[in-house]
Simulated assay, not measured.
Amino acid sequence: MTTIDIAAPALHVRPAVPTTRLRLTVRGRRVIAVLASLPAVIALALAILSGGSAIASHDAGAPAGTFATVTVVPGDTLWSIAGDIAPDADPRDVVDQIVTLNALPTGDVIPGQSLSIPVEYSAGR
């Protein structure tokens, strides 16, 4: 007769392997920094190169001298000027066009200030 010995299977235990940390040299850190910042540099370069297209276009634009000018007198406001030059138009639109055309930072005007008037309203005043 044969006997079978039932024994627990042998467990394979791996020897302890020392864990090493990833060590980056100065050169490695520089390479990672360059690779990480590369998309931002490319985006900035594209923005700088394509940003000037609106300023330097080949459009003819408005010839000099086509805008009439209005000199602000004491008591004038942009609203009153808009009402004088375009009585049939919405004053809000006219004021917005005057502010945009003259690149005014605020809606305040000073007596003696010269304002350019949009072409479509230049015959009104």
Rank of each mutant, 00 (worst) to 15 (best):
A10L: 05
R23S: 03
T25M: 10
I42D: 02
L35M: 13
F67Y: 05
T25V: 01
A62L: 08
V41E: 01
A68R: 00
F67V: 02
T19P: 06
N102I: 10
I98F: 11
A68W: 08
A43L: 15
L24R: 13
L44S: 09
A10D: 04
D59E: 15
A103W: 10
R23G: 00
A47S: 14
G51M: 09
Q97L: 15
L44M: 09
P63C: 08
W79V: 05
A56D: 14
V73N: 04
A68G: 06
A16N: 07
D90W: 05
I85Y: 00
V94Y: 04
L11Y: 07
L46P: 01
V34M: 04
A82V: 02
A10P: 02
P63V: 10
A47Q: 07
G83I: 00
D59H: 05
Q97M: 15
A54E: 03
L49E: 04
Q97I: 01
S37N: 10
T69F: 06
A60T: 14
I42K: 01
T19Y: 00
V73S: 13
I42S: 07
T69R: 07
S53W: 11
G65F: 07
A47M: 13
S80M: 05
R27E: 14
R27I: 01
T69S: 13
A43Q: 11
T66R: 01
P15Q: 12
